[in-house]
Design a protein around this nucleic acid. Structure first.
Lengths: 133, 133
DNA sequence: CTGTATCCTATGTGATACTG
DNA sequence: CAGTATCACATAGGATACAG
């Protein structure tokens, strides 16, 4: 894997096979990460700008200390949020969206649009699958 | 909730608040569903057309009988796939994408594009989070 | 052929207490 | 303030057997 193997803009048709495969696998994993209970809320909370751990926690009423840490670690692992530790006392840790994280919001908006367009079908399907079977 | 409350095309700015809230909640849930291990593969397998249970299973090497059932039930619950039971013996059950399911592929493609665009950043973040910490 | 029930392991989510 | 450890519980994923 060299630098020039990472082809130009997405969808230009020149991506090597391994890039397509990695992109599809990554897409699935990112769906899983932002499908966890609080990840989407955390990304939305960070959209306006940088927040400290405790600030972020206040933006997410009901989240536990541990779960916020886990959620942020998962988002950090996939390059969606960046974490900056200031070696002060008491410690200060800032979280912000990366370029990738900001781009991810377009995908999320696409999913919200899809939900709006198909909300009636979805609710109908859930009614069928719920009470009656 | 009446029919006319379901506003026109997404993003036209006329959606009532409850539609936006429902869409965001639904988006999160759909991220979770298609983030499960096999859901995306199942949707891709059904993209060309209708498949029976056993055909679908052959398209997804390694999936277990039970997990395929669970995956399909989850997709059916959110109106992404439709299930048709033919009352024959032996039984025959067909699965196909709904209109919503076909529309979902655009969102998935958006996520794949995002992955391709940011693959280098993602892999770098994972390298940092993985071995070294 | 399709689907459910059972048993198992791994992980997500959360409450609480402890550490630097 | 931020993070980790521990305990508890629910659910995802899977192997296998049984049922319609």
């Amino acid at each position: 894997m060299t630098e020039r193997d990472v082809a130009g803009p997405a969808g230009d048709g020149t991506d090597p096979a391994w890039v397509r495969a990695a992109a599809e696998a990554t897409a699935r994993e990112v769906f899983a990460v932002i499908g966890t209970k609080w990840a989407l809320d955390a990304v939305n909370a960070l959209a306006p700008g940088t927040l400290r751990f405790a600030e972020l926690r206040r933006e997410l009423p009901g989240i536990s200390h541990k779960v916020l840490t886990q959620t942020l670690r998962a988002l950090e692992r996939d390059g969606i949020v960046a974490r900056t530790v200031h070696p002060t006392v008491p410690p200060r840790v800032d979280y912000r969206l990366t370029a990738a994280g900001r781009g991810l919001r377009d995908v999320v908006n696409g999913m919200c649009d899809w939900s709006r367009r198909h909300l009636a079908e979805i609710l109908a399907a859930r009614t069928r699958s719920g009470p009656t079977g």
